[in-house]
């Protein structure tokens, strides 16, 4: 009888102690507001830096002369599991050599289908494309997610095909 009463009291006190232990953990955090970990996202845009390898979108690199390195070989188009890259190329007559040469007309990228798997960048033989670090892709119209990556008037950089 007495034993069971002692057991009962021990149960109650042990339970209360475990609850107080839990309250100590949360109490520690409310008394240490410096430990707050959340960030105020749009306000911290200036200091927010993504890692170099962050995969946000596919970009076609252009240099200052508006030249890119894409030869239109469609290796990325083949490597893409989701069909998010479409390359429309045309054969253009080169006035200097007099030969017809393949050149990209449109490098179409469907962001809506892209899973950022990085396989296209791996497959590119001329390092023409890269993963961009921009992650703010929200738009109001789905059609805006399809973009042409090569800038108007851009050309293939010389020496890439050699």
């Amino acid at each position: 009888m007495i034993k069971s009463i002692i057991k009962y009291i021990k149960e109650v006190l042990g339970g209360l102690k475990s609850l107080l232990k839990g309250m100590r953990v949360t109490g520690y955090y409310i008394s240490h507001p410096k430990e707050i970990i959340t960030q105020q996202y749009p306000e911290n845009k200036d200091t927010l830096k993504m890692f170099d390898r962050f995969r946000g979108e596919v970009i076609l690199l252009h240099d200052e002369n508006n030249e890119h390195r894409c030869t239109g070989c469609t290796a990325c188009e083949v490597a893409c599991p989701n069909g998010s890259i479409e390359i429309i190329s045309e054969r253009v007559l080169n006035p200097e050599t007099g030969k017809k040469k393949k050149e990209i007309d449109k490098f179409i990228y469907h962001l809506s289908m892209c899973t950022m798997c990085n396989l296209c960048i791996e497959s590119c033989p001329t390092d023409a494309i890269k993963m961009g670090r921009n992650f703010e892709h929200a738009v109001f119209d789905r059609s805006l997610l399809t973009s042409v990556l090569n800038r108007p008037g851009s050309k293939l950089a010389p020496g890439v095909e050699d």
Partner: peptide
């Protein structure tokens, strides 16, 4: 993960 693989959830790190 983000620094190593470039993604946070669907990492696709192994090939």
């Amino acid at each position: 993960f983000e620094e190593t693989c470039g993604a946070r959830l669907t990492m696709n790190y192994n090939v």
